[in-house]
Amino acid sequence: MDELKQQQPILLKKGAEASLYVSNWHGRKALVKIRMPKKYRPESLDKQIRSYRTIHEGQLLHQAKGAGVATPLIFMIDVPEATIIMEYIEGVQVKQQLNMVQKEGRREICLNLGGLIGKLHKENLIHGDLTTSNMIIDNQGKIFLLDFGLGEKNVALEAKGVDLHLLKRALQSTHFSFWETCFKDVLTGYRLVAGGELTEKVYEKISEIEKRGRYIEERRQ
C-alpha cells in the first residue's frame, strides 16, 4: 500500500469522455481511466451513461481478446466510480503513426486494422468509436484497440455498417489528404478476415447509412 501511496497518479490526458492517469498497480505500470461526472447533464442521465459505458467497455475489452484482437489487460473495474484500471500499453497512437510513415507503411497499418475490425465483426462485436486516436501501435507493429465505451454486442448489419462508417468519417476529418486509400485498405483487410459476402453486405449498408445523412450529394429521394 505504501508503494501505491508514494506513486501519485499522473494525469496523462483529459479527454472528453474520460480522464486518463498513469499509475502503478501492484508493481505494474497501469492506466487509470476515470469517467468524470459531467455537470452539464442531469445527474441521473450522467450516472446512467457513465456506469453503462464502464461496464460495456470492460466486457468488450475482454470479448475482443476472444475474437483475437489485442486489447489492454484489465486489472480492476469500479462501476460506481466509473473507473477502469488497466495495463499501460507502450506505443504511439495510430493517428500519429499514419502521419509519420510512408505510403507502404500506411497500407500495412490499414490492412492490419481492417483485419482486426473484421475479427470483431465476425463475433458481432461493435467497437462504436473507431477513430485513429483510439488505437495504439507498439514498437513491434502490433495494434491494440482501446476505448470500447460506446461499443456493444449486436448481430445487426446496421451496427457493423455504422462502425465502419464512423471510421471512414474519422479518417476523412483527421487524415484528409490520404483517407481514401486508407479506407480502401481497411476494407481489403476486413474482407480477408470477414469474407467477401459479409464485406459486400456491410459495404452496401455503409452507402445506405450515408444516404440517410443530411445534405449528401449522392442522396436522391
Binding site: L45, Q48, G128, D129, T131, R169, A170
Partner: peptide
C-alpha cells in the same frame, strides 16, 4: 426526468 434513448455513435 424521464429516461429516453440517448444515441451517440462515435462523434455522430
Amino acid at each position: 426526468f424521464i429516461s429516453l434513448p440517448y444515441v451517440v455513435k462515435g462523434m455522430d
